[in-house]
Simulated scan of single mutants.
Amino acid sequence: MAGQVSHELEVDVAASQVWEIYGGLRLAQLVQQQLSNLLEDYQVIQGDGGVGTVLKLTFVPGLPYRVAKEKFTKVDDEKRVKETEIIEGGFLELGFTLYRVRLEIIEKTQVSCIIKSTIEYHVNEDAAANASLVSIQPFADIALTVKNSLLSAIPK
């Protein structure tokens, strides 16, 4: 069984500024600092934020899993697209064979863009009920946190 969910958030900040956070390791830092209800800790296992980077993510208690390793499989600075896949733990422990997140920063104007987050997944038929655990909400919360962080940094 396969599925996909997406979320879009418009941000009145230049796409290049948003990509500075999303394009590398700054996103994990921001999430750990500002969304303590989601991510307890992260460690860079390998890499510097480019393709092949592997992060060990430790989530807060109460989620269906505690630890996952994700690998950056695509980082396109020109198109502002980053894709990550869970390679160990996380949803893979729940019968999923693929859990991929695509983060896109889509330029609208010179001073506005859209943060588009997409989860694509495949789950074994015998674990199909676990597909209901897939939620785009954490990525909506992350996008809003990035937006608010960037907007608060702009002098008024």
Rank of each mutant, 00 (worst) to 15 (best):
S117E: 15
T84D: 05
L94G: 04
F59V: 04
L25T: 09
A140L: 10
K79V: 03
V60E: 12
E40C: 01
V101T: 09
A15Q: 05
S117M: 11
L144T: 12
L144S: 10
N130I: 03
L9N: 03
Q110H: 10
K156A: 08
V101M: 07
Q29T: 13
E20C: 02
I86F: 13
Q33G: 10
Y121W: 15
T58H: 03
L144V: 09
G49H: 14
G50H: 02
H122Q: 15
A131Q: 11
Q33A: 13
S112E: 00
K156Q: 11
I86E: 14
K71T: 03
G95P: 06
Q32N: 14
H7A: 06
R102L: 13
I87D: 04
V54K: 05
I142P: 07
E70T: 02
V31E: 05
L98I: 14
Y121A: 10
E104Y: 03
L63K: 15
E40H: 10
H122K: 13
T97V: 11
A129T: 01
A68N: 09
F139K: 05
K147R: 07
A127N: 11
R80M: 13
S149P: 00
R26M: 09
S152C: 06
T73L: 09
V5D: 02
D126V: 15
L151H: 15
I87C: 04
S16M: 00
V51N: 06
E125L: 12
P138V: 07
S149I: 02
V81F: 08
G49N: 12
L38S: 07
G90F: 00
A127L: 01
K82Y: 04
V134C: 09
K74H: 11
N37Y: 04
G89C: 03
V54E: 00
E125I: 07
I106L: 14
G50S: 08
G89M: 05
H122P: 02
K147Q: 10
L27Y: 00
S135P: 09
S117N: 15
F72A: 14
A2Q: 15
D48H: 15
Q110E: 12
Q32G: 06
T109K: 06
M1S: 14
N148V: 07
V75F: 00
R66I: 01
E85V: 09
S36D: 11
L27N: 01
L63M: 10
Y65C: 06
S6A: 02
Q33C: 04
L57P: 02
E83Q: 12
G24I: 02
A131D: 01
S132I: 08
E40I: 05
N37I: 08
L63G: 13
E120V: 15
L98P: 04
Y42H: 05
K74W: 01
P61D: 15
K108M: 07
P61T: 03
E8C: 11
A128V: 00
T73K: 06
A15I: 06
Q46K: 12
R80A: 02
W19Q: 06
E83N: 10
I119A: 04
S6G: 03
Q29W: 05
V54Q: 01
L39V: 01
Q34C: 10
A127E: 01
I105L: 07
C113H: 02
K74D: 00
R100M: 14
E70R: 03
